[in-house]
């Protein structure tokens, strides 16, 4: 299974048999809007906080992924997920809602592929028949945690990034039809000294 130093080759063909995707209002105006299963036109998604909205999106993504197949929730062995919020609460609460044994991950944006790689490895080795793997993020929740309040009038540089409001979930199986995960290469943490141009100290305006 191990090829070289950090690559896995999966011989038993772990297959993505279905996916569930949810997006927010900004994503609804994007070019891949037609490929997203549920689009919300409200950042709050009828919840009383952005973090709860993110959890709702993650739950919806998992439910859609399950609904597209005839796999029952009880047949799924593990749920592998993570997100950007402190203590990965949206993922953990989704784990509670789904009532499926749960692995929590944190690798920022890389979480989506990390969860898929680990899920494939488990399915490939016979550790599970079905695994739900996915990740979620919410623009306003991430802004609040990593940058400024959403209504703060700070000027963003042209290189500023925009965190997605959305959730994605893949149902991985040891057999079935769909894209097959053939291999995964796990990356190292590399620091090239590039600093975020939006951290507080660097951009703090000289007020008054």
């Amino acid at each position: 299974m191990l090829v070289g130093h950090q690559t896995w080759m999966f011989k038993n063909k772990p297959t993505i048999i279905s996916t569930g995707t949810v997006g927010g209002p900004f994503e609804a105006n994007g070019r891949i809007a037609n490929d997203i299963d549920i689009l919300h036109d409200d950042m709050w998604i009828k919840q009383d906080s952005f973090e709860k909205a993110q959890r709702t999106m993650m739950e919806e993504a998992c439910q859609i992924a399950l609904k597209k197949t005839d796999v029952e929730k009880e047949q799924v062995q593990f749920f592998i997920s993570g997100d950007l919020i402190n203590q990965i609460t949206p993922s953990t609460f989704t784990g509670k809602t789904l009532d499926i044994p749960y692995f929590g991950l944190f690798s920022a944006c890389a979480t989506s592929m990390e969860s898929l790689a680990l899920a494939s490895s488990i399915v490939n080795s016979g550790g599970a028949n079905y695994i739900l793997s996915g990740t979620s993020s919410h623009n306003a929740a991430a802004e609040r945690q990593f940058r400024y309040p959403t209504e703060y009038g700070g000027q963003k540089p042209p290189t500023a990034q925009w965190t997605v409001t959305g959730a994605g979930c893949a149902l991985l199986a040891n057999k079935g039809t769909g894209p097959v995960v053939t291999s995964a290469t796990i990356g190292k943490v590399v620091d090239m000294g590039i600093t975020d141009r939006l951290i507080w100290e660097e951009q703090w305006p000289q007020q008054q």
């Binding site: 309040p149 959403t150 209504e151 703060y152 009038g153 700070g154 000027q155 305006p205 007020q207 008054q208």
Partner: peptide, 28 residues
């Protein structure tokens, strides 16, 4: 925040920028 994105320091340096920083945090 839209004025701020357009004006930068122009809307951050006057006392209005200070007010915005307080109110935005309170809303958040």
């Amino acid at each position: 925040d839209r004025i701020g994105q357009f004006a930068g320091a122009g809307s951050a340096v006057p006392v209005t920028g200070f007010g915005n920083a307080v109110v935005a945090s309170a809303i958040e």
